[in-house]
Amino acid sequence: MPNDIQDPAEPPMGKNRVEFSANYLKREKTVSNNSTDDNCLVVKGLNLFYAKTKQALIDVNLKIPRKRVTAFIGPSGCGKSSLLRCFNRMNDLIDDCVIKGKIYLDEEDIYAKKVDVADLRRRVGMVFQKPNPFPKSVYENVAYGLRIQGINSKRVLDEVVENSLISAALWGEVKDRLHDNALGLSGGQQQRLVIARTIAVEPEVLLLDEPASALDPISTLKIEELINQLKESYTILIVTHNMQQAARVSDYTAFMHMGNMVEYDQTDTLFTNPSLKQTEDYITGRYG
């Protein structure tokens, strides 16, 4: 892998600050121990165009550490959702969307010809802003992914459904109504059901696109708590407009603006002492 790709553990902009004080050195070390060598996703020279004329992503380079939460923040239209959708090739579904550059998942190029996109989307699951359960029972929603893989053994399905619902912190609320229609659940429950459905197929990466912005504050906290638990097993990427949410749930934060990756650093650093004025202006609500 080339060295010019932004690595959150060694922020190029933060060099001075790192040397500046012993405390920073200590903190820097504890993080780099568990992140530098194990990157789940690596983005290299990524450019994305819609209709040839509109460039949505401009030469994005970054490494996303495994089993950590990485948040993408930035104003509307900055390209964060476009970037997120590149990771499971959702942009393939858009006509005249052209992608240049590489994305590696476990050092494997996901845009290579031999890649099975359906399998990629199993490995890289996605949850959207609006909960989208199927109009089926709670049980069938979670079992859906396994059924289309041809797994129909009741014993296996029962176990996966229970485990996934437990992981999604929903089991206690739905265990007595597994065969009720999922559309009867509340919005927050539906969103956790969708997460359970996603993790039932054992993905490696979870892409969360504004997963809590349609939910009330309590449901939002439940989702945030869930993200915290899920990062033990999955690499999580989250797009959010709620900066306090990014500050609370993520380990790393990337600030994007007009298709550029402006600053990418540890969340604690980015929200208390960002390197660039542009980042500072955005997170503190200034007009620059």
Partner: peptide, 9 residues
């Protein structure tokens, strides 16, 4: 306001 960065400082 939940200030961030230099505002928080």
């Amino acid at each position: 306001r939940q200030p961030a960065a230099s505002d928080l400082r």
